[in-house]
Simulated scan of single mutants.
Amino acid sequence: MTHGTETTGRMKQSPDHEDEILDVRRHQDPGRNRLTPVVQLPPDVALSVVDALAGLVRAAHHTEQTHPTPAGVLKQAQEFEEGDVFMLEPPFEGFFADRYLMDFYDTSERDICSRMHLHTGLRFVRMMTGPETTIRVSSLSPITVRPAAANWTGPLRAFTDALPGTPTGVHRDRHNVIVPPNSWVDMQIPRGVSHQFNAVGPNAVIDSVHPEESIETLREGMSGYRMMAQTIFLAKDKSPATTCANLTDPSSSTRH
């Protein structure tokens, strides 16, 4: 099993395991995530977009509850630690990618933060927020914030704090960037690079592309397209909302 320093070969000990844990003491990211501010919208426009996309996820999950997917058929309504998911566009032979939408959970409402994790394939993520909602993006490596693609009001807030839930006596820096309300931000996540998303507020959604989905399944020997099976966690347990709902760390505020 690799520990974050290799970019080829098998990453998981048990490919179908949906809660596999990697020792955070030994993991080193093989690269850095890149974040691009895209556009900021009027609150009513941002809310309309987020509601429309989140509505697709909610409708898919309602359908799954009333008419469960038969065994052996791709289940498109799934769950992540950060929110409910709908695989909008599954991969097919000759096109090794899928696209999913995620309706974020409100961290402060659930009093649970998602765990730091990595994936067996790269990801492209567009995060969208509506009114009174932010997303805290975190990684064990500094996050590269690229120039805004259009007019953007002020720099994104960034700071470093301590990763919660580490073994006794182990300290790992956690690098954080805050996505403000009514904003679109793109994030490029290389294979094997740690990341963590936590929304604070009710209006947040992700539109994500997995460009290696079928390849991952073949490489890792997975028995089906279960997105959580391509996730490797860097903590055994989820932490309370106090470890991710705060938006700044005054003791060590910095920009990357």
Rank of each mutant, 00 (worst) to 15 (best):
S114I: 09
S114D: 15
M116K: 14
M116F: 01
L118Q: 09
L118R: 12
L118G: 07
H119M: 11
H119Q: 14
H119T: 11
H119I: 05
H119F: 02
T120W: 12
T120Q: 12
T120I: 12
L122K: 14
R123A: 15
R123L: 14
F124Y: 14
V125H: 01
V125Q: 01
R126D: 00
R126I: 02
R126T: 07
R126A: 03
M127T: 15
M128F: 06
M128L: 15
M128H: 12
T129S: 01
G130V: 11
G130E: 13
P131W: 08
P131M: 09
P131Y: 06
P131S: 07
E132C: 05
T133A: 03
T133M: 00
T134A: 09
T134I: 05
T134W: 08
I135Y: 01
I135A: 02
V137M: 07
V137Y: 09
V137R: 12
S138T: 06
S138H: 08
S138V: 09
S139R: 01
L140D: 04
L140Q: 06
I143M: 10
T144Q: 15
T144N: 11
V145L: 07
V145I: 13
R146G: 14
R146D: 15
A148N: 01
A148E: 04
A148F: 06
A150M: 09
A150T: 15
